[in-house]
Simulated scan of single mutants.
Amino acid sequence: MDTITIKAKGISVSLDLTVGHLADMAVDIDGRRLQPLHRAPWVDARETLPENLPEGTVRLSGDFLCAPFSRSDIEDAPLHGWPANSAWDVVDSQATSDGWRATFRLQRKVMGATVDKILTLRDDHPFLYQEHVFSGGSGAISVAHHPMTAMKNGGRLAFSRKRFAATLDDPLEPDPARGRFLLAYPARSTDMTHFPDAAGGTIDLTDYRMDQLREDFITLVEADHGGPGWTALARRAEEDLVLVLKNPAELPVTMLWLSNGGRDYAPWNGRHRGVLGIEDGRASVGHAASVGDNWLKREGVATAFALDEGSKVSFRHVIGAVPQSGGEPPRDIATAQGRMRILAADGTERDIAFDSDFLRIGRSVPA
């Protein structure tokens, strides 16, 4: 069994057990089926891929746990670590009084820690509630979720309040023979609608345009606003709103991966189009950088969890989708008393079922 599917009323999620990636997510709501997550075009194509690709790239899908995020340069592991590249076992999967709950365990250990993935679905909630638990281990580990969505005709973004956005010293694809990028590197801005671009002008980070071929990566640092961190993407052609939420105390940064035909080499071959990674994490780029000195730490941002034998570290994350026409993201999102209230761009409000206790805003988090 390579894939397991769990279901509750109005929602189903499939997990690829060979690499721990979400292979599919479907939300049935208001007479429609929404599929917010992306699956790379080569995964099911039965084509010959380059040798030595990380297994997580070969089966690139949906969302997965990165531990560490990016380079695994302390322990020997592929890009994004063993949780994104190796097998998971089913520990438990069963119906609950209001949905379904399943627990999976990584067959390998990370820095000596046992890693569990807990997926929860609730009847008539258009959300996947995720928790990852590291038990034991030693040292420190950077982590990130890696949800990816895709658009046929672009979309518009909105975020919970951020301190600033910043790019790294170097772009993902600096060689024009292999790919292209649009943002300036390094650069920084507090205005998400006016970020420096490589041509000397500015670009609107809230507008994902299909005519801008690019491979870009940018980090958004959460502001201290006392609520959940969130990203909302209004997909134009799909006529829906993709929602990704976190507890900023656990995952203080949101890293955006904009992959729109910006890589010309295999397996990408210019066909990875309209993809946006919304990567909430506690990380810098690379394990060694995350546990050592880095630019985020100098900004007061935590970039790793400390592991200790006999103790546990956990963090939570939410992915969802609801129907929406008009292509404009919300002005604001608030969660309380078992509901999510979405304040639309036109000033109207919409309430949907949401486990407002799940992210535990305000709880203390280990360093």
Rank of each mutant, 00 (worst) to 15 (best):
295 W>S: 13
344 A>F: 08
193 T>G: 08
341 R>S: 08
11 I>E: 03
38 H>M: 14
149 T>F: 09
333 I>Y: 04
111 M>T: 05
80 H>L: 00
238 E>A: 08
347 G>V: 04
128 L>P: 02
315 F>V: 07
192 M>F: 11
358 F>K: 04
65 L>M: 14
46 R>V: 01
306 A>H: 14
81 G>Q: 03
163 R>E: 13
150 A>W: 15
143 V>M: 08
34 L>S: 04
45 A>D: 11
29 I>D: 01
169 D>F: 13
343 L>F: 12
350 R>H: 09
246 K>C: 10
6 I>V: 11
91 V>E: 07
117 K>S: 14
249 A>C: 02
344 A>S: 10
209 R>L: 11
8 A>M: 06
87 A>R: 15
33 R>L: 10
274 G>P: 02
282 R>T: 13
343 L>V: 15
9 K>F: 01
66 C>P: 08
87 A>I: 11
364 S>W: 03
94 Q>L: 07
287 H>G: 04
135 S>A: 10
358 F>D: 01
240 D>H: 07
306 A>F: 09
367 A>N: 12
48 T>D: 09
348 T>Y: 01
72 S>H: 06
294 N>A: 06
292 G>Q: 00
137 G>V: 08
24 D>R: 07
27 V>D: 03
225 H>K: 02
332 D>R: 14
40 A>Y: 05
